[in-house]
């Protein structure tokens, strides 16, 4: 029975898989391989070398990329912490708050930013910031990132919380814990895999964002994606491939961590 329904026995499964894998990961592999190319050309192989990695850290453009990287990581860290905190509060309110009016509407509002085209959010955010005269550069990017990271942090946290029965909080309260103690000593440790997962997702989303950042950043400040875009406009140099490979590696690490965090403790709730 299982053999018949096994997807691997469907006709055309293998060619379809190969096609998808090549389309998705082929370009990434080419970028990774050519980041080790000892040649100025981005298409002709000239032997193995780490020169472009050296160039990224110590070359002419290194200060620019370092500054951009610092901005990206500091903004991603703060945006992820803040949005995760807000997402935890939202999840507890939505899932443990019982039935309240406009509950469905609240959920739609939280997850709407995932559906709205990013360019619309970007334009709207820019108009909003300009209208209220908030054009600080770094701070505008941070605020915008906090806002659009909330739904990404919310989803894994809410999913985790929904799987936790409220008998644990009841048991804690029964054993003389105040509401705050029940939350911090019992509910939060149980939610932790979801919280870590949400945090990492928010971090990666912030680190990687280009459209909104590009609209709201103003002159004189760059994050890694906008700096890379700026550099590419003047022609693609292999150092861009080295930066991209480093970012790819980082995303890979974060996604892996997020996956392990999501599995953590799920076997024995």
């Amino acid at each position: 029975m299982a053999r018949k329904t096994d997807i691997r026995h469907y006709q055309g499964f293998l060619p379809m898989t190969v096609l998808c894998m090549v389309l998705l990961y082929g370009p990434l592999i080419i970028v990774m391989v050519y980041s080790f190319n000892d040649s100025l050309s981005i298409t002709r192989w000239g032997g193995f070398s780490l020169r472009w990695y050296y160039d990224v850290f110590f070359g002419l453009e290194a200060p620019k990329f370092q500054k951009a990287a610092f901005n990206s990581f500091s903004i991603a860290t703060m945006a992820a912490i803040t949005s995760t905190t807000i997402a935890v509060a939202a999840a507890v309110g939505m899932i443990r708050g019982g039935q309240f009016r406009a509950k469905t509407a609240s959920f739609a509002l939280i997850s709407l930013p995932l559906m709205v085209p990013e360019i619309v959010t970007a334009v709207a955010t820019l108009i909003f910031f300009t209208t209220i005269g908030f054009t600080a550069g770094y701070a505008t990017i941070l605020v915008a990132h906090i806002v659009f990271c909330i739904p990404f942090a919310y989803l894994p946290i809410a999913a985790r919380l929904e799987g936790i029965e409220n008998i644990y909080e009841e048991a804690a309260m029964d054993l003389y814990a105040s509401r705050a103690q029940a939350f911090f000593q019992v509910l939060m440790p149980l939610m932790l895999p979801g919280i870590i997962s949400g945090f990492l997702l928010a971090f990666v989303i912030s680190l990687d964002d280009f459209i909104i950042t590009n609209f709201v950043k103003g002159a004189g400040i760059e994050t890694l994606p906008t700096a890379i875009f700026g550099a590419v406009k003047q022609g693609i140099k292999p150092n861009i491939m080295a930066i991209s490979t480093l970012l790819l590696l980082l995303s890979f690490v974060f996604v892996t961590l997020s996956w392990f965090a999501g599995r953590m403790g799920s076997k024995n709730p």
Binding site: E165, I167, Y168, E170, A171, A172, M173, D174, L175, Y176, A177, S178, A182, V186, L190, G265, N268, P269
Partner: peptide, 17 residues
């Protein structure tokens, strides 16, 4: 509940995992 000198053994134990 946290101010009642009453404790409960829950049906599904609710031990903190």
């Amino acid at each position: 509940p946290n101010r009642r000198p009453v404790n409960t053994v829950f049906q599904h134990y609710a031990l903190f995992p």
